[in-house]
Structure formats: structure tokens, C-alpha cells
Design a protein around this nucleic acid. Structure first.
Lengths: 231, 231
DNA sequence: ACCTGAACACCGTTCAAGT
DNA sequence: ACCTGAACACCGTTCAAGT
């Protein structure tokens, strides 16, 4: 599985100004050459998928990566910093997913808003390990790293811009866009958490999911008032 | 602080068929007479409030309650069972809060639905310790105790009944009530989690909360479509 | 019946020591 | 520079032993 963590920071450290690698990585001894950080993030994700986010231990992550349990402390000040790195990667992947879904409707702001939400939920359900770390306990947004703050702010900005674009075209009402963004976020976040935590179950669950997501997003557009009409 | 846990199971064990206490509890030695279970739940809540749900340890809960770290295992098979007892108490308190808010509008089903949601959010924000345990990691709804399943089902039923009552009076549209209940639940759950986790912040936060809750619930009634009109 | 104290197999984190 | 191994202060859980 290729994730963002395979492509970030440490690879850049091995490239000089002219783009020529300084010390080519031997695959048999790769962790001594700078990609241990990325490997630790991938191992953490593997543990989360197998046993849940709260079961992650530095010692097991280190063992899976083939280093001693003290080695991760060369790359992360503590366990929380490792989890924050997972969360940052998650926000970047989520924004990419939302933008990809929105790109299918370059000229229809209402569809772009809808698929901003669809993309959000799809990411959460496709990457529950990332999502749990992004919004689970142990993430204190007040003292998060700047990198994490930037990535999470970008995801909110994507939603906010989709709403104001709709207002500019008059396809949604002219209320406070911040309040509307909060309603959208609460809806997709709540739904994602309920599904991930197993509180929403139906028979033929996976085949029913697209219709559930559609109904959810539409209910926010049409509302519950009785004069509802189809598009 | 008086909580439900002070009133349940073990007190009943000390009362015989005719309602006469068999062994009056000495206050100086109370834990040897049946209320250790309730005391442990209250201690767990205190730890959650002080240090967060993931910081709860059996050893600290036991120490706060004045017993050895092995004593809790007389009343709970493991740590998870203690947390499940906290969650069950939470669902009971939440249903009580929702019903109390709804009772102010005995003849207005739309207001009852609205204040079902308001009561839900109020409970979550007033009892974040309970709420985190109810919906946090480590609660596997598939293998929860029957008591916990009953209490959580009762809270969902309260919402579902509020919706069908509105449909019977024609004050909301006639869509699938289960899908509508899911939209409501996702909205209030997502909002509660975002506020509890500190992802929603404004200056003058507490004074702004009632308006935010109102806007959130109203947005689900009116929807985002541009022909919105005030009530 | 209910609780204690020691024990076991784990944690996160630190740090002197190796290469 | 980067990693190791031992050490420390913690966990959850078990169990023989006490009252």
C-alpha cells in the first residue's frame, strides 16, 4: 500500500540542491538512511487497522518496523507526535479525495458541495484508521503542530469555499456560511463516526451505503419541512 | 454530585422481600456492604473529568475509592465492563434529559422533535465524560451487555417516536422515518463530538452555544435550498 | 463473601553505551 | 547521526492467602 508518508519529508533530505541523491538507499538497510519516520507511520496504520487505534504501542510499531523500541524517539518526541503525523497524513488524503470528487462537476456548485460531503464520508469509511486518529481522543487541537493545523484548516476551507460558491450562484439560501459549514460538518462527521463505530447497521450494509449517503446529504438541502419537492 | 449509580442494583440487594434492610450500612465501612460498584463508577467519572476518558486506570479508580487495585474485579470482570456501566448510566441520563425537554411541549410535535435534539446536545455538553465513554473507542456495540443495549435503544426510540409523531400530524415530510432519524442523530452526534473535542471554537463561546444549537436544528428543518422562509 | 498483596506480562520514556 | 539494551515507573489481570 502506497501512502503519503512514503513520499514526504525524509526523502527530500536525501536530495541535494541540484536534485541528485546524496546517499542512495540500500534496501537491506533502509532504516538507517532516513525513511524510518515514514515506515513507522505505515506500521502504526497497520496496527490500527488490525487492533484499533487505542491498541497502538510504540513498542509494537517499532518491532513491526524492525527496530528497537527506543528508535522511534529519534523521529518523534513521544507517542502523541507519531499519532499527530498519522492525523496530518489523513487530512491531506481527505482533502485530495474531496477535491477529486468535486472536480467531476467544474460548473455546478451545488453538485460540488454535495460531492464535497460525499468525498468526506468516503474517505472516512475507506480509511477508518486514519479517521479515528484524526478525530479520536488524544488529539488536542489547541496544542497541535503547525503542520497538522494547516492540513486540517485546508479541509475545512474546502467545505467553506464550496458553500460560498453556491451562495454566489444563488443555489443555496443566504445564511451565515460559517453556520452552514458547521451544519454540514456536523452531519458528515456524525454519520462517519456512527458508521465507523458500528452503531449504524443494516442488512446488505455495503450496498445500502451509497443511498444512505445520498439521503443524508439531500436531507440537508431539502430539510424536513412538509413542502418537500424532488429536484 | 448524585448520579444514577448511587441508586441502582446493589442497594436493592440489601433489601429483603418486605422492604426491610437486612444489613444496615455503616458509613465508615460502607464498601464492604454492597455499594462499592456504584462508588467505582463515580470515581471513574471523576477521573474522566479530570484527565480524560483514556486516562482511566483500574488502579487509580480503586485508589480513589479507597480499596486495593484488585477489589474492582469483584464487581466488574474487566476494565471494559466498568466503562460499559458508565455508558449505560449515560444513556439513562440522556433519555431523561431529552424527555424532560420534550415535556414542555406536550401538544406540539415539531417542538418536541426540536427539543429532543436540544436535550441530546445539552446532555453531551453537560456530561462530556459520560458522552465520551458512550461513543468513544472501546465500546463495541456488537458485544455490549444487554443492559447497555436496552438503554441505548431507548434513546434512539425516543428520537424515532418524535419523528413519526411529526409525520402523523403532517408537520414534516413523509420520507422514511428511519433515514430521517439517522440524519438527526448524525447531526446532533457530530456537533456534540466536535464541541467536546474542541474543534468548534468561537470567542464568547458559551453565550454563542444556544444560537448555534438553534441554527443547527433549524437547518435540518428548513434545508439549504434558496426558497427558505422563516417560520 | 469480600478484599489484599505479590506476581506476571505488558506499557511509555529515558539514557548511557555502542557503531 | 542513528540505534541498542537496560532501567524506571507505570499498566491490566490473576491468584493464593487472609478476615
Amino acid at each position: 500500500m502506497l501512502t503519503l508518508s512514503t513520499l514526504t519529508a525524509n526523502d527530500v533530505d536525501n536530495v541535494n540542491i541540484k536534485g541528485v541523491p546524496i546517499s542512495p538507499v540500500k534496501k537491506t538497510d533502509a532504516y538507517h538512511h532516513g525513511n524510518l519516520r515514514a515506515a513507522l507511520i505505515d506500521s502504526a496504520l497497520a496496527v490500527i487497522i488490525e487492533k484499533g487505534a487505542e491498541a497502538v504501542t510504540i513498542r509494537e510499531v517499532a518491532a513491526r518496523t524492525g527496530v528497537s523500541h527506543a528508535a522511534p524517539y529519534r523521529h518523534f518526541p513521544d507517542k502523541n507526535a507519531l499519532m499527530a503525523a498519522v492525523a496530518k497524513e489523513g487530512f491531506d488524503l481527505m482533502v485530495a479525495r474531496m477535491r477529486r470528487r468535486m472536480a467531476a462537476f467544474p460548473d455546478d456548485p451545488l453538485q460540488r458541495l454535495k460531492f464535497c460531503g460525499i468525498g468526506y464520508i468516503e474517505f472516512a469509511l475507506d480509511h477508518p484508521a486514519h479517521y479515528r486518529v484524526m478525530f479520536g481522543p488524544g488529539q488536542d487541537p489547541l496544542r497541535a503542530s503547525e503542520a497538522l493545523k494547516l492540513s486540517s484548516a485546508a479541509s475545512f476551507q474546502t467545505l467553506f469555499d464550496a458553500i460560498t460558491a453556491c451562495q454566489a450562484k444563488g443555489v443555496v439560501h443566504g445564511g451565515d456560511p460559517m453556520a452552514m459549514a458547521l451544519s454540514c460538518w456536523a452531519m458528515v462527521h456524525g454519520f462517519s463516526m456512527l458508521v465507523i463505530d458500528g452503531l449504524v447497521q443494516t442488512r446488505a450494509f455495503h450496498s445500502a451505503l451509497p443511498a444512505m449517503m445520498d439521503g443524508l446529504v439531500d436531507s440537508l438541502y431539502f430539510g424536513f419541512r412538509p413542502d418537500r419537492e424532488p429536484l
